[in-house]
Simulated assay, not measured.
Amino acid sequence: MIRLPHSLNAWGTSAFNDVLGQELSQLDAADLPLQQGLAGSSHVSARPFQTMLISARENAGLLRVKVGIFYGGVIAGCSCADDPTPVDEQNEYCVVRLDIDMTTAETAVTLLADQPD
């Protein structure tokens, strides 16, 4: 489980959006469900991802944050010398919900398929 203590400390301030984005950008892409969120490619690329805050609110001891993530994906070929598949990076986007424990900053990450609030 990941922890987002700086984001929790910034909650309720004007710096929250920036702190959250910075803290998320320091995570490894494998800590987020980016592979499961792919729509037009088969593997997450090594390109750094970017985040966009959609909403945030407190709910029963949790800070519930909805974040859009922009990242890259590639369609993997067979890696043969004569493979005609170009290695083109595709833009990908998914929405995740972060449930940040208001006491410990431990954060559960859930991929949202239909982007509910």
Rank of each mutant, 00 (worst) to 15 (best):
P48M: 08
H43W: 10
L62M: 13
V65C: 08
F70K: 07
R64A: 13
G61I: 09
A56R: 11
F49L: 05
C80I: 03
N59F: 07
S55K: 14
L53N: 02
V44N: 11
G68P: 03
T51F: 00
V65K: 07
I54S: 09
A56N: 10
M52R: 15
H43Q: 13
V67F: 01
F49V: 03
P48L: 06
S79Q: 13
K66Y: 08
G77W: 04
G77H: 08
L62P: 00
I75D: 01
L63W: 01
V44W: 13
F70I: 03
C78S: 11
P48T: 10
G77Q: 05
R47P: 00
I54D: 07
A56H: 14
S45I: 04
S79I: 03
Y71Q: 01
R47M: 05
G73M: 04
R47I: 03
N59M: 10
K66E: 10
R47G: 01
Q50I: 03
F49I: 04
S55W: 06
I75Y: 01
Y71N: 00
G61R: 09
G72E: 14
K66F: 11
M52S: 14
T51I: 03
S55N: 15
K66M: 06
L63F: 05
G61M: 08
R64S: 12
S45T: 11
E58C: 12
G77T: 09
K66S: 11
N59G: 02
G77I: 08
G61H: 14
I54R: 12
V44A: 10
V67C: 04
V65W: 07
L62S: 05
A60V: 11
A60K: 15
C78K: 14
V44P: 02
G61T: 07
E58N: 11
Q50P: 00
N59A: 10
L62Y: 15
G72I: 08
I75R: 08
I75M: 06
S45G: 13
L53G: 01
V65I: 14
L62C: 03
V44M: 06
S45F: 04
R57N: 08
V74M: 07
L63I: 15
M52A: 13
M52H: 13
R57V: 06
N59I: 05
L62N: 12
V65Y: 03
H43P: 00
Y71F: 15
H43G: 01
A56C: 10
